[in-house]
């Protein structure tokens, strides 16, 4: 299985990266960990003339937490390195869980968060978590930087908001409010090395009483071409104390807006059923992180 021929470019810094991208435009593809790009290039279809390797750029590999700005992750930061930051597990549990489930150890060692987002696969694990955690991406280009929420960045199946000459610089996750918790739950058929069939990420913020829900966000994964922010469903939770009925209403509302595909892996109908289970489970786990064991 040979890769098609291309020219390999390894910029020394982001300045050079920007100029290479503007020189080569559509003929170039960025290579980070390569776990998506090289696999795709081995199948017919994707044949860039230039491959621009960003994996050596320290400027894009940092992972920094600041109590004010939040967590800033360079687009080329490795999935494993992100998981190993204690603050990620502590404050952004949904993201941690979504990374933990990606591929296997080798894939997490090689793959980057930026790659997972830019690849824009409907089945990618981190985007739903990032959406639920209200993450924003910074895009760098000749005309300066742009910032937008992850759900706007991912435009469709394998489509992003990146324009010619632009690249993804970093991902910023705001500091979660006090009394908040988050979780990412996914469903898969094989125990390991498996992409999700359906996925859900939930973030909840509770009032001081640790019971009433102050705010919530829900993101649905693999049930449409892009992650779906289920804001209307999440709103149902606000001001309420959780109950089985409430959660069923919410999960039903999520199922109603989902648009899963029907393929040989599972039917759309079944995916919707699973989606509801995951909404409830993810909510439970996020809620328990703050409220303790009792609903």
């Amino acid at each position: 299985m040979y890769l098609p021929s291309f020219q390999y470019l390894a910029p020394k810094d982001t300045g050079e990266l920007a100029s290479l991208l503007s020189d080569h435009g559509d003929k170039a593809r960025i290579l980070s960990g390569g776990t998506d790009l090289l696999v795709q290039m081995k199948s017919p279809g994707l044949r860039p003339d230039f491959v621009i390797d960003i994996s050596g750029l320290d400027e894009l590999s940092g992972i920094n937490f600041d109590a004010k700005t939040g967590l800033v992750i360079g687009s080329a930061a490795k999935l494993d390195d992100i998981m190993e930051m204690p603050v990620v597990k502590e404050k952004y549990f949904a993201l941690w869980q979504s990374i933990e489930t990606i591929g296997a150890r080798q894939i997490r060692t090689m793959g980057s968060l930026g790659g997972n987002i830019c690849n824009a696969s409907p089945a990618a694990d981190t985007p739903p978590a990032l959406v639920a955690l209200s993450a924003e991406v910074s895009i760098a280009g000749a005309k300066g930087d742009r910032v937008m929420p992850v759900e706007e960045f991912i435009r469709g199946n394998r489509q992003t908001a990146l324009k010619k000459g632009e690249y993804l610089k970093s991902i910023t996750l705001p500091v979660p409010e006090k009394n908040s918790g988050s979780a990412y739950h996914h469903f898969r058929v094989r125990g390991g090395m498996e992409i999700a069939m359906v996925a859900v990420a939930v973030q909840v913020v509770l009032e001081k009483n640790n019971k009433t829900i102050k705010d919530a966000s829900i993101a649905l994964g693999v049930v449409g071409p892009t992650p779906i922010r289920a804001d209307d469903a999440a709103k149902i939770l606000v001001g309420q104390k959780p109950s089985e009925d409430l959660l069923q209403t919410v999960s039903q509302a999520c199922a109603d807006i989902s648009k899963p595909i029907d393929d040989f892996r599972a039917s759309a109908e079944y995916r919707k059923e699973i989606l509801q289970v995951l909404v409830e489970e993810a909510f439970d786990e996020a809620y328990i992180q703050v409220a303790g064991d009792s609903k």
Partner: peptide, 27 residues
Amino acid sequence: CEQGDCGACTILIDGRSHLSCITLAVA
């Protein structure tokens, strides 16, 4: 498999497991 699915090509790069079937030699 030559596409990352089986792990038979695992090697160490800087002490960590990598899949050599989807790693460029030039890199």
